[in-house]
Amino acid sequence: MSALLEIRNVETYYDLIYALRGVSLTIETGRITTILGNNGAGKSTILKTVMGLIDDQPDKGEIHFAGQRIDGRDTEWIMRRGISFVPEGREVFEELSVRENLLLGAYTRRDRRAIQADMEWIFGLFPVLKERTHQWAGTLSGGEQQMLAIGRALMSRPKMLLLDEPSLGLSPLLVKEIFAIIETINAKGVTILLVEQNARMALSVAHEGLILENGRFVLQGSSATLQADKNVQEFYLGMHSEAAVKGYQRWKRKRAWR
């Protein structure tokens, strides 16, 4: 096993806002890694920084992918190294058909036949998309758009897939379906970095997890370790360590990441 993505001491600013305060992360080939954290912790910022979507950032630090330094490069260049990103809020091309969206996912490829085969594979994963092939992507439901966004990202045959809150706004049943598909994709050899609010679901599929608070990683470990951690249980999984006698809890657990 070797490190596919390596982030070293990355610091990112949004103008004056100090969003990432020195983040380091190593992801090995073939793993599912999840980053958990509250709103505004900087989860999405990590992914956007990796993809080069924030102008002139990262301010400090280095990002390496498959042995190449990728920070400070154009998004399209980074993407062509083999990283696909499914942005938060789908971002499909609304006035293009489902088919055209998928074809654009394969924009960097020239092998027509293989593209067609991959499209069939995507339709196998998401049968709904097949029914909607010629419909404008903007007319799809939120869940269908999410599926399309994932399918589109896979069409470039990436080495690594970055997912930004794939469960956002989906029904619990659909969330389960999406996570099952994430596991299927991973079994095909795609390394996955998953950013999630839904900690329970994320930890159930991930091999490893990291907790991000205020732009710093505070805890890192295998999924099992994280699930067993008292703090994680309290703050991210919504479990209570002691039963409240009066039916409600009067005290608050302090955050102490040690």
């Binding site: 993809m51 499909v92 470039s156």
Partner: peptide, 20 residues
């Protein structure tokens, strides 16, 4: 198609590897 994609969603087009 790349032109239309760029028009509709600039960042997503970049993510597809289109040299916007």
């Amino acid at each position: 198609m790349a032109m239309k994609a760029t028009q509709q969603n600039f960042n997503a087009a970049k993510l597809m590897g289109i040299r916007t």
